[in-house]
Nucleic acid binder design. Structure first.
Length: 104
DNA sequence: CTAGTGACTGTTT
DNA sequence: AAAACAGCCACTA
C-alpha cells in the first residue's frame, strides 16, 4: 500500500482511536501527516462508504462538541449515544472534556 | 477555467 | 464566554 488517498489516510488514523476515547478533526489531519486540513477530515467522514470499519463517532471538533451538520440532527444524536455507550461523559452543555477523553 | 460550499481551527475582538 | 475573521483545500456545478 504505497499510495493512499488523503481520505484513506484519515480513515486509518480514526481506526486507531481506542474505544472510550475521542479525537478532533485537526488531530486526525495532523496524525495523517496533513496538518491544517481539518475541513477535509470532516469531508472525508461525510464520504464514508457503507461498508467501512471506521469509528467516525469518535471524531469531534476542537471545542469538545459533536459537530452539527447540514440536513438534520439525527446523526449527531446517534454519535452522542454511541460515545456514551463507550463511557464518554458529556457535561450539561453537551460537551466532552478533552482533558479526560482526547486521543492520543 | 471560476465560484460556492463545508462533520474545521487558531487568533482576535 | 461567545462571535467574528481569516486560513485551509477537495469537491461540485
Amino acid at each position: 500500500m504505497a499510495l493512499m488517498s488523503s481520505y484513506e489516510r484519515f480513515y486509518e488514523v480514526v481506526r486507531r482511536v481506542p474505544r472510550g476515547r475521542v479525537t478532533t478533526y485537526g488531530t486526525v489531519a495532523r496524525e495523517a501527516g496533513l496538518p491544517g486540513r481539518a475541513r477535509q477530515v470532516g469531508y472525508a467522514m461525510a464520504a464514508l462508504p457503507d461498508d467501512h470499519d471506521v469509528p467516525w463517532h469518535r471524531v469531534i471538533n476542537a471545542k469538545g462538541e459533536v459537530s452539527t451538520r447540514a440536513g438534520g440532527h439525527a446523526f449527531e444524536r446517534i454519535q452522542r449515544k454511541l460515545l456514551e455507550a463507550e463511557g464518554v461523559r458529556f457535561d450539561e452543555r453537551g460537551r466532552i472534556s478533552l482533558e479526560d477523553f482526547s486521543w492520543p
